[in-house]
Write a protein that binds this DNA or RNA. Structure first.
Lengths: 222, 222
DNA sequence: CCAATAGTGTCTTTCAGACACTATATA
DNA sequence: TATATAGTGTCTGAAAGACACTATTGG
């Protein structure tokens, strides 16, 4: 039995206080005209992660992206693609704010779409609603016990910017004082650069870079 | 580009104070004679989870197994199988103690092997060392914040038996008093049946069944 | 000066971890 | 009786959450 194997990407970023996902409008059948997650076929001599990185570079138009990329899950229901039997390996990517993407070969349009606009009966193509929901849940959960939130920030960032990531992804308010104490007290999470920045008036904030820590203990609870 | 798609199973159980994994000795090339994880090809009209359930039933010889089964990860390095391009979707299964398994069609032998015996340079076939390691890490992590440990227990079990699961999987001692307070105080985790049992002498213990809770909050920390 | 944001200190409650103690079975 | 295991109570230290307070900028 022969299968086609594809990669689908759930790429999140934060733009203007909203969690956004990279979406493409399909220009070919099936689901022509419908919004979908970006993706494509795995090539003959290509590993799965390699394929995900290639697709990500193609869709965003950028090389050497400073993004987090991890495998999410694999979807292979017999008729998820009406043309042929396709098994799709989904990857989750988190990126700092990027420029508006360019449309790829088989997409008539590519855009950052607020995740809130794609909920419920928004009906992405194929089973992409399910993949998006799984990606969102993974991202939300991982913020708790990993330093993943820094993947949404630029190379240098303030504690307030990092806190903003949590607030947008979780959709709740976080106490600035307790958050500050927690993240600056978590060893290896943040490294002060010595520089300071004034972003929105008020006292200038210390700038930080991601630290070496791979796990947050204790976690930050939702 | 055509791929073969397979399922590989990481099936854990606890036997005689040891965490064991279901392993088969390969009877055909490649890796003939070597130990491997059980698995097989996904059929034409079969979903991935369906295939995993079918393989699990075939390998253990039992239907309607009361086991936990979840997708683990997907492995697709270009030359992980020397014969052809294979993408394998691995599933993690956790089961209460089961009888010694029967060998399948392409395996000369099937056995429960202690995980400790398969560490380091044990060299399972293909990339199965990596899959096993990923499965072990997933199982260990999930015990912390989910009621998954009950999947290793029979339908009715004592707090001591549940504690034993944590001790064997994590390889550490757990304080019986604090553990008892914690799990019985976690709402929806355990449901007392009213029955009692004497397993090893001493005061008989209350018997419990799994509750409805899908998440443990706060988690039990390693 | 005031407004706004950054960052610290302090109090209360909750919970993990250590462990003494009581309860109920078998030999 | 002794012994083994089940289950409860209590103390201590760490950390979460609430929030008063100080610090440093711009207007």
């Amino acid at each position: 039995m022969a299968f086609a194997v594809t990669i689908d990407l759930v790429v999140f970023t934060i733009r203007e206080d909203e969690l956004c996902v990279l979406a493409v409008r399909r220009g070919v059948s099936p689901y022509c005209g419908r919004w979908a997650l970006p993706g494509g076929f795995v090539q003959e001599e290509e590993g799965l992660l390699d394929a995900a990185q290639r697709e990500l570079a193609e869709e965003t138009g950028l090389e050497d992206l400073p993004v987090h990329l991890e495998q999410l899950a694999t979807y292979g229901a017999p008729r998820r693609d009406p043309r042929l039997r396709v098994v799709s390996v989904a990857y989750l990517a988190l990126a700092a704010e990027l420029p508006e993407p360019a449309a790829g070969s088989d997409a008539s349009e590519a855009r950052w779409r607020p995740v809130a606009d794609l909920s419920s009966p928004s009906r992405l193509a194929f089973d992409h609603d399910e993949i998006l929901a799984d990606g969102l849940e993974r991202a939300r959960g991982k913020l708790e016990y990993s330093p993943l939130a820094t993947a949404f920030c630029a190379d240098e960032f303030t504690v307030a910017e990092l806190r903003h990531v949590y607030e947008v992804v979780w959709g709740i308010d976080v106490d600035p004082r307790n958050f500050h104490r927690k993240v600056t007290g978590s060893p290896g999470f943040l490294v002060p650069t010595g520089r300071r920045a004034t972003r929105n008036g008020g006292r200038p904030a210390q700038l930080y870079r991601r630290g070496e820590a791979k796990l947050l203990n204790p976690p930050i609870s939702r």
